[in-house]
Nucleic acid binder design. Structure first.
Lengths: 237, 237
DNA sequence: TTATATATTGACTTAAAGACTATATATAAT
DNA sequence: ATTATATATAGTCTTTAAGTCAATATATAA
């Protein structure tokens, strides 16, 4: 680095400039009782005090090395989970979304198995079925953010195996299909779904089958959920 | 708004907090002489003075109402164009990418017809073939940003008609196919490509055909490039 | 008039999804 | 034990859009 640049950096003070607020917000999804749920926070500080919002907050410049760490930190605070599926959705920034001024938020969504959630009884947070959450008047522009996150999840579900990240360690293909159907809000053809999952080899048969119901079903486990795996064709619309 | 919240907002001063820098960077692509090019800037200010970088910069809290406006403003400054195709790619934020401190950048890519570029002779900016740009040592983490933008363009090209945004007003199907091939870095089957474009009706025949070469080819114009149009199936890999 | 290059179309093949039917196997009722 | 019932699982035909390959059309140039 040149001494010239060094001089510049020494005299540089970020607070001499007008810059926007920057936050990370997230839609944390899980399946509870056959319904897609999202975690909402009851805000007990200004602004928008008293309203429900998506979990999120400021980047901690000391603790967070990067944005994903901010997201993971928030996620851990609210769920006690270290490594659920996490994906960045979109960044929204404008002059009006926050009464404190120009504000930018980086939106993530997370998928997790509700059975693994540690912090089930945090007083300020609560799981809402997505359809109910959509009807609430959320803080800031969080209704739009929730919609964007859900749309992204829905879209991904039509050509990836992401919903596996919502499943418990062991699951049947019927259970997996049901979760796909919950997200897509429509029924899928059984044979087609099974063939798709099986030929893609995104799932490992445990042999150790069996479960509830009438005829027992084979139990599978996920081979790992990757952002980069795509089925050859999307599900028909 | 409660008077309580009013009081909070009055006492709120963003400069009391540690917040990251926020910038918008963009990969502006166009086709020049049968090659995919990207616009780079010769930096004449600190930091990273003297290096090449993607165009971009700070959000202007006074002028820009939202992030897309920031991106459009930058784009206009560098190309003189008001409405090329613009799409947000991803946001990168960490403690190390900018020597001034924790920094967040929202990455966009733009596609435009080079023939429409007004500002062809800006002294600080220059078009580079993407393959050459990749080999340059760009400022900050802009090599990674360029790669992300290009990867996104490539991916989109396999299941959308986005590359139409790179075409002049009138073009033949062969010319369009060539642009797809340039981006995908591989040949495509002719018959298949034409059928795909034609049955999707993303293009309007002008009747007024004719052009260079041996046998004359029909001229088409774009029906408009939409982020939300998807072919039923992606191109085979 | 013929050669050549590029444009354009016809028609067969392939792959993965959808649709429908048949079979298998568990529990519960008789 | 036998039968009924529900769910799991597999077989197979159809459909659709892409890939493949070959044939035809129409400019320009020799």
């Amino acid at each position: 680095m040149s001494s010239d640049e060094n001089k510049y950096l020494k005299s540089y003070n970020i607070k001499d400039y007008d810059i926007p607020l920057a936050t990370v917000d997230m839609s944390i999804f899980s399946i509870i009782d056959g319904t897609l749920n999202v975690l909402l926070i009851h805000r007990d500080t200004h602004p928008e005090k008293g309203k429900l919002s998506l979990p999120g907050g400021f980047i901690n410049l000391k603790e967070d090395q990067n944005l994903d760490e901010t997201a993971h930190r928030k996620l851990f605070e609210k769920t006690g989970l270290k490594s659920p599926y996490l994906e960045q959705v979109e960044t929204t920034g404008n002059a009006t979304r926050d009464p404190r001024g120009w504000s930018v938020t980086i939106l993530y969504f997370a998928l997790l198995d509700f059975g693994k959630v540690k912090e089930k009884a945090l007083k300020d947070s609560k799981w809402f079925p997505v359809n109910k959450a959509k009807k609430e008047k959320l803080a800031f522009d969080h209704n739009e953010l929730l919609e964007k996150a859900f749309d992204r999840l829905k879209s991904r579900t039509s050509y990836t195996a992401l919903p596996m990240a919502l499943m418990p360690n062991l699951f049947t293909l019927t259970e997996l299909q049901t979760v796909f159907e919950i997200i897509l809000e429509k029924k899928l053809p059984i044979k087609s779904f099974r063939r798709r999952i099986l030929t893609a080899e995104v799932v490992i048969p445990t042999g150790e089958s069996k479960l509830s119901g009438k005829r027992n079903a084979q139990l599978f486990k996920s081979k790992g959920v990757s952002k980069d795996f795509y089925f050859q064709r999307p599900l028909q619309v």
